[in-house]
């Protein structure tokens, strides 16, 4: 089985969110980069678990990003990817990124293309769905469980207030979230092996962006907390009802 795992680089969850160049660019000063947690903990680790059960599985990683994305791709290889492809583009338009991934996907015969449910920076949740349209493949999103049996996948996805199990004939695209697998730490052997695993760099296809970011802004900060004494719960209820008007 061949799996393509989409990997995105995102700022660490504790990174300070600030902007430069007239609020048009994310301020990368001092930012630590990580693999988008949904890509790493859930999608990649589940792919690795599938390979552990069936060692003939190939796990290819793809990232669309500049050379600064290479450390996170090496980390993903250390966790257990077999080889990686970096498409050398810094676009932040989901459509352009999906087109790059689709172009690579078309060259391999992948049974499963996996993404995280969204990235923690742009929170767009677009790539899996876009890939399904470009590649004309079935798509199950927000999956928290996946079993593969021959050419059939059984995928459990989140629905409002519960879960639903879908049976899908491969190839397919799946976006992963919590429940799918558990976070792992790369071991020394993995880190050593990752150094020599293939990491191919390809130039992007020319594709026109459909959107552009004009500006970023920060939400207004809270004006300050109103403290209520623990024995004044009637007062709190009154405030929620009459001042905040939420109950």
């Amino acid at each position: 089985m061949n799996i393509l795992v989409c990997i995105s680089k995102t700022p660490d969850t504790t990174a300070k969110i600030a902007f430069t160049e007239g609020n048009t660019k994310f301020d990368e000063n001092g930012v630590q980069w990580i693999i988008n947690p949904y890509d790493e903990w859930y999608s990649l680790v589940r792919a690795i678990e599938i390979k552990e059960k069936d060692p003939t599985t190939n796990i290819h990683l793809i990232t669309v990003g500049g050379p600064e994305a290479e450390p996170i791709i090496r980390k993903a290889l250390a966790l257990g990817g077999d080889e990686a492809i970096r498409v050398n583009s810094n676009s932040n338009d989901s459509y352009v990124i999906a087109q790059q991934i689709a172009a690579i996907a078309k060259q391999g015969s992948y049974d499963l293309i996996m993404t995280g449910k969204e990235t923690i920076d742009y929170n767009s949740a677009c790539i899996g769905s876009m890939l399904s349209a470009i590649l004309d493949l079935p798509y199950v999103s927000l999956a928290n469980h996946l079993e593969v049996n021959g050419n059939t996948a059984s995928v459990q996805r989140e629905i409002e207030g519960g879960e639903e199990t879908n049976e899908v004939i491969l190839p397919m695209i799946i976006s992963c979230q919590k429940g799918m697998a558990e976070q792992r730490i790369p071991n020394m052997r993995g880190i050593m092996a990752a150094r020599t695993k293939p990491l191919k760099v390809v130039e992007p296809l020319a594709t026109n962006a459909h959107t552009s970011i004009k500006e970023f802004s920060l939400p207004p900060s809270k004006t300050g907390v109103k403290l209520i004494a623990p024995d004044q719960m009637d007062e709190l209820v009154k405030l929620l009802k009459e001042e905040a008007k939420v109950i």
Partner: peptide, 24 residues
Amino acid sequence: AHNINGKAIAPAVAVKLDAGIVTG
């Protein structure tokens, strides 16, 4: 709606229509 099903289909519809999309 940017809800569970909306996330699964809105971006695909955008691709099919050659439309730009903003989610969230």
